[in-house]
Each structure stands twice: as structure tokens, then as C-alpha cells.
Simulated scan of single mutants.
Amino acid sequence: MIKAVIFDMDGVIVDSEPVYLKIQWEYAKKKNPDVTYKQLFPMVGATKKDAWSVMEKAVDNGQTWQELRTEFKEKIDLFTNTDYQSIFRPEIKSVLDALKNQGYKLAVASSTQIDVVEKVMKVNSIYTYFDTLVSGDQFTMSKPDPEIYHYTAKKLGVKENECFVVEDSPYGILAAKRAGMTVAALYDSSFHFDQHLADYHIQNVKEILDILLKMEKS
């Protein structure tokens, strides 16, 4: 029986991934004008090392991924300059209302740093819906390692098989599956993610309400 619903943030609650990637692409093009937007697709949802190794290969100017990432962070405040209200998925609020009324425990498990997670929740007036907010910065390993999901289940006081996760990237889906959780993949039209490992495939977050109702009855 499902007792908790856990949301990824980037790509699920806010459509931030294309915004972030376009900023990173502009940075890459200043170093190598031939870098294409599509070349950087594998950065989305990846660990820091894997993401910036993609940047290193695309830029190909002799700088290491660590040097590129450090320089980027020194020059560009990615999170402060993003308008999270404009990319918030408006249907999220009604879904959270319904889930809360039905007694589900709610959490966010995001690879993004905790201050940004809290900011996104607060500016979109959904902070109080969640029983816990968890950031990948709290762990040694990032998604697709399942540690973040094991920890979130423990914080919620539920078993892993009692958790229903909403994700979009292959890394997040794999992390939740490795943790033994049920996963719904929100369709991605920007990067054409491989989402085949998910248990359910949805076009809109509202669809999880029907899925959970059917699971309850089965």
C-alpha cells in the first residue's frame, strides 16, 4: 500500500532543466562556438562529474571538467537568476492538495542544493505541503545511486515499497527503482529521456491521482 509520494523537483515541479541548459550552452559557446545545444543534453539530471565531463568534451579547450564548473559557478549565479514562478507547473498545487487530503505523506527528493529547493517551494507557496525536503548535497553519491530515496523514506517513516515517486530523468528513475519504489515518469518533450524503467508514464502530474486510486483498489 502506498503511503507516501515523493517528487523530484527539476523537470517535475518546475520546468527548470531547459532554462539551466540554455545558460550552460551560452557559456560553452563562448569557449567553442561550434558547441550545439543537443550536445549538452546528457548534462541534464546527471551527477556533477558526469554532467561537467559532457561540457569538457563539448568545449574541448584543454580545461578539465572541474575547472570549467568552478569557473562557471564563479561567473554565473544560475539559481538566483532563474524565475521559478514562471516555470512552475500550476497543476502541482491541486495535486498536492488532493494528496494531502487523502493522507499521503509528501516529500521532495532533489539533486539540487537545499537552499534552492526551499526557495522554489516558498516562492510557489507549496512549502508547507511537504513533510520533508531532501537534497542530493546531503549524500556522497548522487542519483542514480538510491541513497537519497532510502533516506527520504526513512525521514517519512515509511518503507521503500510504500513510496510512489514522480521523476523525469533516467538517473532519477533508476535511483528510485533501485530503492524499491514505484515510479511514474513525467513525459519530457525537451530532451527525449529514456524513461522505460518507470512503472507508469504520464503526460501531466494530475494523472498520478488516478494511478494511486487504482493501486488502492487493486
Rank of each mutant, 00 (worst) to 15 (best):
Y151N: 06
V116Q: 04
S142R: 06
H196N: 12
Q66P: 00
Q102H: 06
Q85P: 03
K206T: 09
F164K: 02
M43I: 01
E26F: 05
P33I: 07
P144D: 05
R89P: 06
K159M: 11
H196P: 01
V108T: 08
K30S: 10
M215Y: 02
R178T: 05
I211R: 01
D194R: 08
L133R: 03
Q102E: 14
S190M: 12
F88P: 03
T80E: 14
L21M: 07
L40W: 08
V166A: 00
Q102K: 15
D60C: 11
T152L: 02
Y151I: 06
V158P: 03
I148T: 09
V205Q: 08
Q85G: 15
H192E: 11
Q195G: 03
Y127N: 11
L99E: 03
S94Q: 12
Y200Q: 10
K155W: 03
K48T: 15
D50C: 10
M181I: 03
F72L: 09
G45V: 02
K100F: 10
E118Q: 13
D194C: 10
N204P: 10
S16H: 03
E56K: 07
E147K: 13
K3L: 05
K38G: 08
G45W: 04
L106W: 04
L186W: 04
P90N: 04
K206R: 13
H196Y: 14
D83R: 08
P144A: 07
L156M: 01
K3Y: 01
V95M: 00
K105D: 08
F79M: 11
N101T: 08
M121W: 07
S189T: 13
M121N: 08
Y37I: 05
D210G: 12
P146L: 02
V158T: 01
S86V: 10
L213A: 15
K22V: 08
L133D: 02
E91C: 04
Q24H: 12
I87F: 09
L156F: 04
Q113C: 10
L156P: 04
S218R: 13
K48W: 13
I114V: 11
Q102G: 01
D15L: 12
L186V: 11
S125V: 12
A153Y: 02
Y149L: 00
K57D: 12
R89H: 14
P18T: 01
V95C: 09
G172D: 08
M141E: 13
K22I: 07
H196C: 10
S111A: 15
H192F: 09
L174P: 00
Y129G: 00
L209F: 04
V183Y: 00
H196S: 15
M215H: 06
N32T: 08
G180F: 03
N161F: 10
K3F: 02
R69F: 14
F88R: 07
F7S: 03
E91Y: 07
V12D: 05
M55G: 06
S169G: 10
E91D: 14
P42L: 09
M9S: 05
M121E: 07
V123L: 12
D210T: 13
K29N: 10
S135T: 11
D115Q: 13
M181E: 07
Q195D: 10
Y151P: 05
V116S: 02
A175I: 03
Q66K: 15
P42R: 09
K29A: 10
D131R: 03
T132I: 09
D188A: 07
A184Q: 02
K143Y: 06
V54M: 00
A28I: 03
P18V: 06
Q85E: 14
Q39T: 10
F88L: 07
N61E: 06
V158Q: 00
M215L: 15
